[in-house]
Design a protein around this nucleic acid. Structure first.
Lengths: 120, 120
DNA sequence: TAATTATATAACTGATTTATTATATAACCG
DNA sequence: CGGTTATATAATAAATCAGTTATATAATTA
Protein backbone atom coordinates (compact mmCIF):
# COMPACT_ATOMS: atom_id res chain seq x y z
CA UNK A 1 0.00 0.00 0.00
CA UNK A 2 1.25 3.46 -0.79
CA UNK A 3 -0.94 5.39 1.56
CA UNK A 4 1.97 6.48 3.69
CA UNK A 5 4.07 7.64 0.79
CA UNK A 6 1.26 9.57 -0.78
CA UNK A 7 0.27 11.12 2.49
CA UNK A 8 3.84 12.16 3.00
CA UNK A 9 3.96 13.83 -0.39
CA UNK A 10 0.80 15.75 0.38
CA UNK A 11 2.33 16.93 3.64
CA UNK A 12 5.54 17.93 1.96
CA UNK A 13 3.61 19.67 -0.78
CA UNK A 14 2.07 21.80 1.95
CA UNK A 15 5.57 22.89 2.91
CA UNK A 16 6.19 24.03 -0.65
CA UNK A 17 2.87 25.75 -0.64
CA UNK A 18 4.01 27.71 2.38
CA UNK A 19 7.30 28.54 0.67
CA UNK A 20 5.44 29.58 -2.44
CA UNK A 21 4.93 33.09 -1.19
CA UNK A 22 8.15 35.07 -1.17
CA UNK A 23 7.31 36.86 2.05
CA UNK A 24 6.58 33.61 3.85
CA UNK A 25 9.81 32.20 2.50
CA UNK A 26 11.61 35.20 3.98
CA UNK A 27 9.90 34.67 7.31
CA UNK A 28 11.23 31.12 7.36
CA UNK A 29 14.69 32.37 6.48
CA UNK A 30 14.58 34.97 9.25
CA UNK A 31 13.40 32.42 11.80
CA UNK A 32 16.05 30.01 10.58
CA UNK A 33 18.50 32.55 12.00
CA UNK A 34 16.71 32.93 15.32
CA UNK A 35 13.47 33.38 17.20
CA UNK A 36 11.94 36.74 16.40
CA UNK A 37 9.23 39.04 17.67
CA UNK A 38 6.33 39.85 15.35
CA UNK A 39 7.25 43.51 15.44
CA UNK A 40 10.69 42.70 14.10
CA UNK A 41 9.26 40.56 11.30
CA UNK A 42 7.06 43.50 10.34
CA UNK A 43 10.19 45.61 10.28
CA UNK A 44 12.31 43.12 8.33
CA UNK A 45 9.63 42.39 5.76
CA UNK A 46 8.56 46.01 5.54
CA UNK A 47 4.94 45.10 5.25
CA UNK A 48 1.72 45.78 7.16
CA UNK A 49 1.02 44.20 10.52
CA UNK A 50 -2.13 42.31 9.45
CA UNK A 51 -0.38 40.95 6.36
CA UNK A 52 2.47 39.58 8.47
CA UNK A 53 0.04 38.28 11.04
CA UNK A 54 -1.83 36.30 8.42
CA UNK A 55 1.30 34.76 7.00
CA UNK A 56 2.31 33.73 10.50
CA UNK A 57 -1.08 32.20 11.03
CA UNK A 58 -0.71 30.04 7.93
CA UNK A 59 2.76 28.90 8.93
CA UNK A 60 1.46 28.13 12.41
CA UNK A 61 -1.49 26.16 11.07
CA UNK A 62 0.91 24.14 8.93
CA UNK A 63 2.83 23.37 12.14
CA UNK A 64 5.99 24.83 10.66
CA UNK A 65 6.44 27.54 13.27
CA UNK A 66 5.74 27.90 16.95
CA UNK A 67 4.62 30.84 19.01
CA UNK A 68 5.72 31.98 22.45
CA UNK A 69 4.18 34.81 24.41
CA UNK A 70 6.19 37.19 26.52
CA UNK A 71 4.14 39.99 27.95
CA UNK A 72 2.41 41.79 25.15
CA UNK A 73 4.82 40.41 22.56
CA UNK A 74 4.67 37.24 20.55
CA UNK A 75 7.83 35.49 19.52
CA UNK A 76 7.91 33.03 16.68
CA UNK A 77 10.43 30.31 15.93
CA UNK A 78 10.71 27.26 13.70
CA UNK A 79 8.87 24.33 15.24
CA UNK A 80 11.45 21.78 16.32
CA UNK A 81 8.79 19.10 16.19
CA UNK A 82 7.69 19.80 12.64
CA UNK A 83 7.37 16.51 10.77
CA UNK A 84 9.52 17.63 7.88
CA UNK A 85 11.94 19.80 9.82
CA UNK A 86 14.93 18.03 8.35
CA UNK A 87 13.75 18.70 4.83
CA UNK A 88 13.00 22.30 5.74
CA UNK A 89 16.43 22.81 7.28
CA UNK A 90 18.17 21.34 4.27
CA UNK A 91 16.32 23.69 1.97
CA UNK A 92 16.81 26.79 4.10
CA UNK A 93 20.51 26.01 4.37
CA UNK A 94 20.74 26.25 0.58
CA UNK A 95 19.05 29.64 0.36
CA UNK A 96 20.66 33.04 0.86
CA UNK A 97 21.40 33.69 4.52
CA UNK A 98 19.46 36.42 6.27
CA UNK A 99 21.96 36.64 9.09
CA UNK A 100 23.06 40.12 8.12
CA UNK A 101 19.52 41.46 7.99
CA UNK A 102 18.59 39.88 11.32
CA UNK A 103 21.79 41.09 12.96
CA UNK A 104 20.99 44.54 11.64
CA UNK A 105 18.11 44.66 14.10
CA UNK A 106 20.59 44.78 16.93
CA UNK A 107 23.21 47.09 15.49
CA UNK A 108 20.82 49.94 14.83
CA UNK A 109 18.69 49.47 17.91
CA UNK A 110 15.54 48.55 16.10
CA UNK A 111 15.15 45.45 18.15
CA UNK A 112 15.66 46.63 21.69
CA UNK A 113 12.14 47.64 22.60
CA UNK A 114 10.99 44.21 21.79
CA UNK A 115 13.47 41.63 23.04
CA UNK A 116 14.22 43.35 26.31
CA UNK A 117 12.55 41.79 29.32
CA UNK A 118 9.81 44.30 30.22
CA UNK A 119 11.32 46.92 32.53
CA UNK A 120 9.79 46.21 35.90
CA UNK B 1 25.49 45.27 -2.52
CA UNK B 2 22.99 42.48 -2.07
CA UNK B 3 21.58 42.48 -5.54
CA UNK B 4 23.00 39.04 -6.28
CA UNK B 5 21.67 37.48 -3.12
CA UNK B 6 18.25 38.98 -3.49
CA UNK B 7 18.07 38.06 -7.12
CA UNK B 8 19.00 34.52 -6.20
CA UNK B 9 16.20 34.32 -3.65
CA UNK B 10 13.72 35.52 -6.23
CA UNK B 11 14.92 32.85 -8.64
CA UNK B 12 14.74 30.17 -6.00
CA UNK B 13 11.32 31.37 -4.98
CA UNK B 14 10.24 30.68 -8.54
CA UNK B 15 11.31 27.09 -8.05
CA UNK B 16 9.09 26.84 -4.98
CA UNK B 17 6.31 28.45 -6.96
CA UNK B 18 6.66 25.65 -9.48
CA UNK B 19 6.64 23.06 -6.71
CA UNK B 20 3.64 24.72 -5.15
CA UNK B 21 1.21 22.79 -7.29
CA UNK B 22 1.05 19.14 -6.31
CA UNK B 23 0.71 17.95 -9.88
CA UNK B 24 3.76 19.91 -10.99
CA UNK B 25 5.65 18.54 -8.02
CA UNK B 26 4.73 15.05 -9.19
CA UNK B 27 5.89 15.84 -12.71
CA UNK B 28 9.27 16.81 -11.32
CA UNK B 29 9.39 13.63 -9.28
CA UNK B 30 8.53 11.52 -12.32
CA UNK B 31 11.15 13.26 -14.43
CA UNK B 32 13.65 12.86 -11.60
CA UNK B 33 13.34 9.14 -12.33
CA UNK B 34 13.74 9.48 -16.08
CA UNK B 35 12.83 11.27 -19.27
CA UNK B 36 9.16 10.77 -20.08
CA UNK B 37 6.75 11.24 -22.93
CA UNK B 38 3.82 13.64 -22.44
CA UNK B 39 1.39 10.81 -22.96
CA UNK B 40 2.93 8.93 -20.05
CA UNK B 41 2.75 11.97 -17.82
CA UNK B 42 -0.94 12.25 -18.66
CA UNK B 43 -1.28 8.61 -17.69
CA UNK B 44 0.74 8.89 -14.48
CA UNK B 45 -0.98 12.05 -13.31
CA UNK B 46 -4.38 10.89 -14.46
CA UNK B 47 -5.37 14.30 -15.63
CA UNK B 48 -6.45 15.95 -18.88
CA UNK B 49 -4.03 16.53 -21.73
CA UNK B 50 -4.34 20.34 -21.80
CA UNK B 51 -3.89 20.55 -18.04
CA UNK B 52 -0.66 18.55 -18.22
CA UNK B 53 0.48 20.54 -21.22
CA UNK B 54 0.08 23.79 -19.37
CA UNK B 55 1.98 22.58 -16.35
CA UNK B 56 4.78 21.49 -18.65
CA UNK B 57 4.78 24.89 -20.27
CA UNK B 58 5.23 26.61 -16.91
CA UNK B 59 8.07 24.31 -15.95
CA UNK B 60 9.66 24.89 -19.33
CA UNK B 61 9.35 28.65 -19.04
CA UNK B 62 11.00 28.46 -15.64
CA UNK B 63 13.88 26.59 -17.35
CA UNK B 64 13.43 23.67 -15.00
CA UNK B 65 12.65 21.10 -17.67
CA UNK B 66 13.71 20.50 -21.27
CA UNK B 67 11.82 19.17 -24.24
CA UNK B 68 12.90 16.79 -26.98
CA UNK B 69 10.88 15.87 -30.03
CA UNK B 70 10.80 12.41 -31.48
CA UNK B 71 8.38 12.02 -34.30
CA UNK B 72 4.98 13.06 -33.12
CA UNK B 73 5.94 12.63 -29.47
CA UNK B 74 7.47 15.08 -27.04
CA UNK B 75 9.75 13.87 -24.31
CA UNK B 76 10.48 15.94 -21.25
CA UNK B 77 13.37 15.72 -18.82
CA UNK B 78 14.89 17.82 -16.06
CA UNK B 79 17.10 20.54 -17.52
CA UNK B 80 20.68 19.72 -16.66
CA UNK B 81 21.60 23.37 -17.10
CA UNK B 82 18.97 24.72 -14.71
CA UNK B 83 20.58 27.32 -12.47
CA UNK B 84 19.34 25.73 -9.28
CA UNK B 85 19.54 22.12 -10.37
CA UNK B 86 21.57 21.16 -7.34
CA UNK B 87 18.95 22.58 -5.00
CA UNK B 88 16.23 20.88 -6.99
CA UNK B 89 17.99 17.52 -6.89
CA UNK B 90 18.56 17.77 -3.15
CA UNK B 91 14.90 18.46 -2.60
CA UNK B 92 13.62 15.75 -4.93
CA UNK B 93 15.95 13.24 -3.31
CA UNK B 94 14.16 13.89 -0.01
CA UNK B 95 10.68 13.33 -1.39
CA UNK B 96 8.95 9.98 -1.90
CA UNK B 97 10.40 8.11 -4.86
CA UNK B 98 8.18 7.62 -7.88
CA UNK B 99 10.35 4.81 -9.22
CA UNK B 100 7.65 2.25 -8.73
CA UNK B 101 5.01 4.27 -10.55
CA UNK B 102 7.32 5.04 -13.45
CA UNK B 103 8.48 1.44 -13.69
CA UNK B 104 4.83 0.43 -13.75
CA UNK B 105 4.59 2.00 -17.18
CA UNK B 106 6.82 -0.73 -18.52
CA UNK B 107 5.48 -3.71 -16.64
CA UNK B 108 1.94 -3.29 -17.83
CA UNK B 109 2.77 -2.17 -21.32
CA UNK B 110 1.31 1.28 -20.97
CA UNK B 111 4.49 2.84 -22.17
CA UNK B 112 5.36 0.86 -25.27
CA UNK B 113 3.43 2.79 -27.87
CA UNK B 114 5.28 5.86 -26.88
CA UNK B 115 8.91 5.09 -26.18
CA UNK B 116 9.38 2.65 -28.99
CA UNK B 117 11.16 4.05 -32.00
CA UNK B 118 8.38 4.41 -34.57
CA UNK B 119 7.99 1.11 -36.41
CA UNK B 120 9.39 1.72 -39.83
C1' DT C 1 -10.15 52.23 35.02
C1' DA C 2 -8.89 54.66 30.71
C1' DA C 3 -5.46 55.01 27.23
C1' DT C 4 -1.90 52.73 24.77
C1' DT C 5 0.62 49.09 22.53
C1' DA C 6 1.09 44.58 20.25
C1' DT C 7 -1.09 41.25 17.80
C1' DA C 8 -5.04 38.74 15.75
C1' DT C 9 -9.14 38.31 13.11
C1' DA C 10 -12.86 39.45 9.73
C1' DA C 11 -14.69 41.26 5.61
C1' DC C 12 -13.64 42.53 1.34
C1' DT C 13 -11.22 43.31 -3.12
C1' DG C 14 -8.16 42.49 -6.85
C1' DA C 15 -4.91 39.45 -8.75
C1' DT C 16 -3.39 34.98 -9.74
C1' DT C 17 -4.01 30.22 -10.65
C1' DT C 18 -5.95 25.93 -12.25
C1' DA C 19 -8.83 23.17 -15.00
C1' DT C 20 -12.14 22.85 -18.81
C1' DT C 21 -13.69 23.31 -23.50
C1' DA C 22 -12.68 24.37 -27.93
C1' DT C 23 -9.45 25.03 -31.43
C1' DA C 24 -4.84 24.95 -33.68
C1' DT C 25 -0.62 22.82 -35.17
C1' DA C 26 2.25 19.33 -36.69
C1' DA C 27 3.75 14.63 -37.53
C1' DC C 28 2.31 10.38 -39.35
C1' DC C 29 -0.23 6.96 -42.19
C1' DG C 30 -3.23 5.04 -45.65
C1' DC D 1 -4.30 14.43 -49.96
C1' DG D 2 -7.52 13.27 -45.96
C1' DG D 3 -7.83 11.21 -41.56
C1' DT D 4 -5.73 10.28 -37.26
C1' DT D 5 -2.75 10.94 -33.31
C1' DA D 6 0.01 13.76 -30.14
C1' DT D 7 0.62 18.01 -28.28
C1' DA D 8 0.01 23.05 -27.72
C1' DT D 9 -2.57 27.18 -27.23
C1' DA D 10 -6.54 30.30 -26.29
C1' DA D 11 -10.54 31.67 -23.94
C1' DT D 12 -13.05 31.25 -20.07
C1' DA D 13 -14.84 30.16 -15.52
C1' DA D 14 -14.19 28.79 -10.77
C1' DA D 15 -11.29 28.70 -6.91
C1' DT D 16 -7.62 30.38 -4.24
C1' DC D 17 -4.69 33.80 -2.38
C1' DA D 18 -2.52 38.06 -0.65
C1' DG D 19 -3.10 42.51 0.97
C1' DT D 20 -6.03 46.36 2.74
C1' DT D 21 -9.15 48.43 6.02
C1' DA D 22 -11.59 48.05 10.00
C1' DT D 23 -12.31 45.95 14.29
C1' DA D 24 -11.30 42.86 18.24
C1' DT D 25 -8.52 41.06 21.97
C1' DA D 26 -5.26 41.12 25.42
C1' DA D 27 -1.36 42.85 28.00
C1' DT D 28 0.60 47.18 29.85
C1' DT D 29 0.87 51.46 31.82
C1' DA D 30 -0.64 55.85 33.68
Amino acid sequence: METTKKHSLVEQALLFKMMNDENRLKILLYLYEEELCVCNLIDLLNMSQPAVSQHLKKLRQASIIQIRSQGQWKFYRLNEEYTHLELLNKILAELPSMKHEVDGLNSNGRRVFCTTIPTK
